[in-house]
Design a binder for these strands. Structure first.
Lengths: 227, 227
DNA sequence: GAGTAATGTTACAGATTTGTTAAATATTTA
DNA sequence: TAAATATTTAACAAATCTGTAACATTACTC
């Protein structure tokens, strides 16, 4: 799965270099040198990451960053701001606006690459695909159906949500608090032990005969989707 | 939690001044005026930031920077290069090598401080690695699993925490009190001898057949992860 | 509005982990 | 070498954590 990186940059040589190098690394790259345009394209295309120049002819990078971070639908897209080396003030301002990272030009490409990878890894859970599988377990988000070994399984809404969340990063251990936050969300006036009960219910549904149990308990830590 | 800054500088007056000022700001400072030594200490101690002089008697700063940036395990540690020359060439060379920032001597301390703060803020979140290894021992914090020689090892919660802490700085010796403080944390109404028991339990788990024992006892001092 | 489904809470049994103690070993010192 | 000091480890009781059934409450469906 190659990530899609959107570059907002009006300096041609830099844009060319970035595009060339990123594509060589296997990323899908698109770009714009116009702020207004960039804003609308980002909202429409939802890239996995944005490289954003500080100074743009029409709309400053920091403004764009602000707009994006205020929009529910795209606020999770990580942004790396690019600025000409110099003003300390700008750096702080950029980071305070919500940019995930900040690099000053000229920068080393390997370093940029490292930061991109690190950011993508951190944000991965937010990138949802229509279908997710783990071993013989499959979840189709379009039809909201779950299958184990090709056999459809019926889950209650909460169990579905729980599985939907866990399968985003199989093997990762989540604490009860994290699960409450992400699966229950809004009203966290719920006992953390309630998670246990729903885990039990989810287990009873997905652990069908002749297939390995799929939820791991990590004592004093939480649960993960794994066998 | 104060950051640890490592200074590589052979000019005594500058080193003294830097150390004094940085410590006054609450940073933990260590240093070396020997390039080779600095390189190995940095790899071992993994400071949060490195101040690196351009010219050193044995090994140039830029070489050190290159070495560090090529090493997966320390490439994320930010480096600020310090140089007497103001030449643009050197700056570019320094930055291309991967240094995060660059200052020419004589520099204003407040400015240096600002840069340090900015860098630490920017890089800190990226250096909490999900994986740590020491020799043939590996700990994956995402799945909370521990491996020795590729074989999974199961640890109790406290043993896991203990190992998780020890592996952050292998070879470093921690007193029982330090371990209690960092691993037990809140309720320190625990006998310091209890640490011994958990060390024993950890040993019994990770010291599998055909692999070197991995925990060193330092009599009347404490323990370290080391063989 | 009755019936059904889903959710959250609680209680309790069972399992695992933890801290303490004491005896056995090991190491240093005099 | 004996005494003093420090560490290892087994054993056990206490504390903590988890799984699940049962039940009350709330939300949905027809």
């Amino acid at each position: 799965m190659s990530a899609h990186i959107f570059v907002v940059e009006d300096e041609k040589p830099i844009l060319t270099l970035l595009t060339y190098n990123l594509e060589k690394e296997g990323y899908k790259v698109s770009s714009s040198s116009n702020g207004e345009e960039a804003l609308s394209v980002i909202k429409e295309k939802k890239p996995d990451l944005v490289l954003l120049d500080w100074m743009l002819p029409d709309l400053s990078g920091i403004k764009i960053c602000q707009y994006l971070k205020q929009d529910e639908k795209v606020k999770n897209i990580p942004i790396i701001m690019l600025t000409a080396k110099g003003e300390e003030e700008d750096k702080v301002k950029g980071l305070n606006t919500g940019a995930e990272d900040y690099m000053t030009k000229p920068f080393s490409f390997p370093e940029l690459l490292a930061r991109i990878k690190s950011l993508l890894k951190r944000v991965k859970p937010n990138i949802v695909s229509e279908e997710a599988t783990y071993l013989d377990l499959k979840i189709d988000r379009e039809s909201m159906k779950v299958f184990r070994k090709e056999k459809e399984i019926s889950l209650g809404p909460k169990e579905y949500k729980l599985l939907d969340f866990l399968i985003k990063q199989p093997k990762r251990v989540y604490s009860r608090e994290q699960l409450l936050e992400h699966v229950w969300g809004d009203d966290i006036n719920v006992e953390s032990r309630t998670v246990d009960v729903h885990i039990t219910r989810l287990r009873q549904s997905i652990n069908i005969e002749g297939a390995k149990p799929l939820i791991r308990t990590v004592r004093s830590a939480g649960y993960s989707l794994e066998n």
